[in-house]
């Protein structure tokens, strides 16, 4: 793993190189060079298996961190290529032409983090949230508690019934309320 990184360090001006257990490495690369490097790793270094694409919200730095995680089946190691992009109106070059499943990740990242990938197929379609109009839900400043309280509690027309009383009234509407309770009701 170290030999590969040494070879490409100058070419892509790699920063923050971290190697774990000799089979996993993370590097940071500039936004303009990221897709070029991903392509190079696939075509020339044997990282042919695209594992996943992910995003981390570093809200305190006003940055979003994109991760392209690649695997080399022959060398049996992973490399995570990290890119930091602006948090305000984030946009990134699409990589859907490199692997067939990448458009799915980009579609999810657009919905979950608001990152635009111009030219990526079906990127504007909903992924898991149908008709979502709020802010991207995976950003750190999306308040899940506030959203749940506003959306679900209290909901108009919602009423809580005591199950035993409700069923008794439904099944025996003519029976006086003062009727003797069943043992199970107590």
């Amino acid at each position: 793993m170290k030999e590969i990184l040494d070879k490409i360090q100058a070419k892509y001006n790699l920063q923050d190189i971290a190697i774990q257990d000799n089979d996993q490495a993370y590097v940071t690369v500039g936004k303009d060079l990221a897709i070029d490097m991903v392509t190079y790793m696939r075509d020339y270094e044997g990282f042919s298996h695209f594992v996943m694409m992910s995003c981390v919200d570093w809200i305190e730095d006003d940055k979003l961190q994109l991760l392209y995680l690649l695997n080399s089946p022959e060398k049996k190691c992973n490399i995570g290529i990290k890119v930091f992009i602006e948090r305000n109106k984030p946009t990134m070059q699409t990589a859907h032409h490199l692997w067939k499943q990448i458009w799915t990740y980009q579609r999810e990242l657009r919905e979950a983090f608001g990152i635009d990938f111009p030219g990526s197929p079906r990127v504007e379609e909903n992924f898991v949230l149908e008709g979502w109009t709020d802010m991207p839900h995976m950003l750190r400043d999306f308040d899940t508690n506030k959203y749940a309280e506003e959306t679900y509690f209290p909901r108009e027309g919602r009423k809580t019934y005591d199950p035993a009383t409700y069923m008794r009234e439904k099944l025996y509407p003519k029976q006086p309320v003062t009727a003797k309770k069943n043992k199970d009701d107590e």
Partner: peptide
């Protein structure tokens, strides 16, 4: 993919399941 930031909670947890690619693309 698990990211920590020095606090008592994870910063990011992202699962990579096989179905993500198998069931869509």
């Amino acid at each position: 993919y698990y990211v920590t930031d020095g606090s008592s909670k994870p910063r990011r947890v992202n699962l990579r399941g096989p179905s993500y690619t198998h069931a869509i693309a």
